[in-house]
Design a protein around this nucleic acid. Structure first.
Lengths: 256, 256
DNA sequence: GAGTGGTCTAGACCACTCC
DNA sequence: GAGTGGTCTAGACCACTCA
């Protein structure tokens, strides 16, 4: 056994053709798992590339490629000279990553909007909500209704549904008192970080009640934005239905 | 002078702090320039990484990083075992990259829509169009008006403005006879490849004429999609105003 | 089997941040 | 100055495509 020159110090690391997964993708999976299990929390510094390479028994370049992809996906944030951090919604940089509504006049500088919470209650999942969140109809959900206003004028009305037990402690008072984005609150106090979201956009005519909330005539065209947000591990963690008054704002998007 | 050991065979390649640009980004710029100048046309195979590395006098790894970024941006397309190709709109893969409208019933498989061209004429840029395209008001533009239909029902009405002389030869007949995406036609016959686009979305109430075209009641909420498309070198190359009937379709978007 | 992109490694050095 | 991520290189080997 001791006569071999390089027996298995450098294992080929790859198997046959089908379902072949490169090393860096496996490392990526391990890092994701650590994020999901909470080994490193949002905002925290993760180990350096050198440390991770040692820990996983691979070269720094392989770790680097894994971290690169996670940074592109928005789960990690690299900062030269400082280290790699777990992404968080507590950051100026990312404040408007999920709200794509910008003013027609000045699309470059998004203003922070005033929030007015109308309701926060426990209720049962309707069929729509249940299907979106992947739970059973009638299961417990937390529902929030709120307005976003700019210069005193309501611009967005939203109904937000959060699944199950995790958000049972959420109250209207806490929502009112919290400074910072909703997703930052969810992250800090309810151990739920929203990682990505899918949106469906439609134009609808305002019903009487919606019209009143947004102070527009009934029948006014509104942008309906249905959002399904996912936490770590592709777990559906929020279903949101927003009505945007787009008379002086628009939803911006980039295609490439 | 001849006594130095390694005078400038391997130049440090980097200067002082401010405005430092790594080698691979410079290579990226050179490749972009070749694309813009038409050295490699859409759909064509570009030289192998080894060849490019030789040509630019850098290592293959550096070329690789440049090509990687261009592939992410959608300008190049890598295919293992075959080579790297210039992206083109002539491809099944990319057919629906720019049209984000999908059916409510079956969002996974987008159906090709029937196209009906209403008009294709030379006209003068209005103030809006001129500002969008970065030209002077009153300059010549080509305007297309068309409908997209699904199962005989109009779903999208679009007005498309194309700048200047490049599209002077475009006719309604050519539009009618061409099989394939509009952007593929522009690419093949008008030397204009759309690389990326910015969209502004709004909900509007249908005016009488629009309502008639889309066969909906006047006042019906429609999704207004303003799109500004850019060709190589961030050149504004198309301004498009689309009205989508979103009663049975929605605009899908992904946030991350 | 030749050629391509894809992975993995090891090592050197640079830019940046913080102490 | 120490530690981090960022760049660049050189070389080996793998997966894939095509002739």
């Amino acid at each position: 056994m001791a006569t071999q020159t390089l027996p298995d110090t450098v294992p080929p690391a790859q198997a046959a053709n089908p379902s072949f997964s490169p090393l860096y993708r496996q490392i990526k999976g391990l890092i994701k798992r650590s994020l999901q299990l909470g080994e490193w929390k949002p905002g925290e510094l993760i180990p350096s590339e050198t440390d991770l390479a040692r820990r996983f028994g691979v070269s720094q370049g392989t770790v680097r490629k894994a971290v690169d992809e996670l940074a592109v996906e928005g789960l990690l944030l690299r900062r030269q000279g400082r280290g790699t951090f777990v992404s968080t919604h507590h950051e100026e940089r990312v404040k408007f990553r999920f709200l794509r509504l910008v003013s027609d006049d000045d699309p470059s500088t998004p203003q922070p909007m005033e929030r007015r919470f109308l309701e926060c209650k426990r209720t049962r999942a309707t069929q729509d909500v249940a299907r979106a969140l992947g739970i059973k109809q009638g299961e417990s959900v937390t529902q929030i209704r709120r307005l976003l206003l700019l210069a005193g004028t309501p611009v967005v009305y939203e109904e937000i549904a959060l699944p199950g037990a995790a958000f049972r402690a959420l109250t209207a008072e806490r929502l009112e008192s919290y400074r910072g984005p909703l997703y930052a609150l969810f992250e800090s106090e309810f151990a739920t970080r929203m990682v990505r979201a899918e949106e469906k956009l439609r134009a609808v005519n305002a019903a009487a009640q919606e019209a009143q909330l947004l102070q527009v005539p009934a029948g006014q065209a509104l942008l309906l934005v249905e959002r399904l947000s996912f936490s770590y591990g592709e777990l559906p963690a929020e279903y949101r239905r927003g009505l945007y008054n787009t008379q002086h704002h628009h939803y911006r998007n980039e295609l490439s």
